[in-house]
Amino acid sequence: MNIIEIRNLHKVYNTTHVPVYALNGIHLIFKEGEFAAIVGPSGSGKTTLLNIMGGLDEPTQGSVTVAGTDIFSLGQRRLIDFRLQHIGFVFQAYNLIPVMTAGENVEFIMHLQGRPRAERITRTRELLTSVGLADRINDRPNKLSGGQQQRVAVARALASKPRFILADEPTANLDSRSTENLLDIMEQLNIGEHITFIFSTHDPRVVRKARRVITIEDGKVSQDQEKSSGS
């Protein structure tokens, strides 16, 4: 089942001197359960593409359809709600809320969704267990290592039960061990719970794990390679 359909996507940034063409006609389809990496040199348009897929930025031309909904046909308020209900984000710099504990960071997104407190507490515990941090539920982010913080961020992204998770350079700030650990967890979630992950990355370790690698150069897809798991 197609979960994301990207058609003829263009993005032009109008700077003061010359327009910058970040995306030049991207066509992509992602199916449910994919574990895909978008790679390419700096400035190739990876992050722009991820932002537009997540509804954080608007395309100059083209459409993004998520589970049958053209997300840019939604108004601003409905788009925010759509993100809340259907899209999970993992950021390069973790972006946890420092005044909240690990558990509260995970729980907060469910609070925004209006889920009952009992359900929130149960799911928070389950998610932190699944990323191996059940014992750190009451710790604030400054008590956690970078890898642990990113695992909390993954648990937070999963908390809203999204259709897919967009992860922008999730391993860029992590050491090798933390990276391997994080990737193993995400792979287990992908295989075990059929959660779709789409990464933008420079990291060869992520590329190795990915089952599909999309290469972007000068705002265009230059290569789209499917491979068998772990190859």
């Binding site: 308020r77 925010i80 809340l84 972006n95 809320i97 420092p98 925004l112 809203s160």
Partner: peptide, 16 residues
């Protein structure tokens, strides 16, 4: 700014 951007990204609406 970064944190507020993250909150908006994950779906915290402007009223909240």
């Amino acid at each position: 700014v970064k944190e507020l951007g993250m909150l908006m990204a994950i779906g915290m609406n402007r009223i909240k």
